[in-house]
Every structure is written in structure tokens, then in C-alpha cells.
Simulated scan of single mutants.
Amino acid sequence: MKKIEKTDAEWRAELTPEQYAVCRCSATEPPFTGRWYQHKEKGTYTCAACQAPLFASDTKYDSGSGWPSFWQPLSKHAVEEKFDETHGMRRTEVLCGTCHSHLGHVFPDGPKPTGLRYCINSLAMDFQPA
């Protein structure tokens, strides 16, 4: 996959201030407020910053966490994972595999078959209907 690299000024010009805070500065939107939290339409969730495909709607589930949750990314290259010790926690950060934008975090308390919960900010995603 081709990686996308842009300057900070380019990202600021292309993203809303809220998207920039999440995607480029690793902010987190408040729980239960995101556009895609209770979204049920069939299709593909894409990166808000670069439009790369991230998650299929059939892997989305209601985790009760307040953020859109998925049990698996669309492909092994769709996302990257990075150890995160910010805010006094030990977590695994999830980044877009194409543009390296912050998406959210992954936790080992999800449903079968993977047992994973990719907890993703709505501001970091767009949606393409099936």
C-alpha cells in the first residue's frame, strides 16, 4: 500500500479542527456523541483523513463503550497498532495504515471470533454505503 505523507499545514487545511485534533493529535471525542456510534447501514468505514478503507460494517457491534466498535479491521494492512502509555494507561493505539492518523484503541475484550474491540472515534472515520 502506498503511504500518504503530508505536512501539518496540509492536514490542518484538509480536516475540520475536531478531526485534526483526533486524527493528528490523538484526541478522543466524548463517548456516546459520535456520528457513527449507533449507525447501522451496510458499507465500509473509511479514514476521514485519507479515505482508505478501514472496517466493514458487518464487523461493527454495540460494545456499550460509547464509541463505534469493530471486532476486526478490513485487512491486516488497514490499520497499524502502537503501544500507548499516555494518560496513565497502558493501551494499544490504532492508526490508519495508509496515513498514520490516530483512530482510537484496541482492547482484548471483544466478541468472537477475534476477541478484540477496536474502539474508534467517529471523527476519524467517514462511511461509504454498500
Results as ranks from 00 to 15, higher is better:
residue 76 K to T: 06
residue 43 G to L: 11
residue 37 Y to V: 12
residue 62 D to R: 08
residue 29 E to C: 03
residue 79 V to Y: 02
residue 55 F to C: 08
residue 77 H to S: 13
residue 41 E to M: 08
residue 34 G to Q: 09
residue 41 E to W: 06
residue 30 P to A: 08
residue 70 F to H: 12
residue 58 D to Y: 08
residue 25 C to I: 00
residue 69 S to E: 07
residue 33 T to Q: 09
residue 67 W to A: 10
residue 80 E to M: 10
residue 73 P to C: 11
residue 51 Q to I: 00
residue 42 K to C: 00
residue 51 Q to N: 15
residue 73 P to W: 13
residue 71 W to D: 15
residue 59 T to M: 08
residue 39 H to F: 15
residue 59 T to F: 01
residue 75 S to I: 07
residue 43 G to K: 15
residue 31 P to Q: 04
residue 70 F to N: 10
residue 23 C to Y: 02
residue 64 G to A: 07
residue 54 L to D: 05
residue 49 A to I: 02
residue 25 C to K: 13
residue 70 F to E: 08
residue 43 G to E: 07
residue 84 D to I: 04
residue 77 H to N: 12
residue 28 T to V: 01
residue 48 A to R: 06
residue 73 P to K: 09
residue 45 Y to P: 03
residue 38 Q to S: 14
residue 84 D to E: 09
residue 69 S to L: 08
residue 76 K to F: 01
residue 45 Y to T: 04
residue 35 R to Q: 15
residue 81 E to N: 04
residue 44 T to R: 14
residue 42 K to A: 15
residue 68 P to A: 11
residue 40 K to I: 06
residue 35 R to E: 15
residue 82 K to C: 09
residue 70 F to K: 12
residue 54 L to Y: 07
residue 43 G to I: 11
residue 60 K to V: 06
residue 58 D to A: 02
residue 50 C to S: 11
residue 34 G to T: 03
residue 29 E to Q: 06
residue 38 Q to M: 05
residue 59 T to V: 12
residue 56 A to P: 00
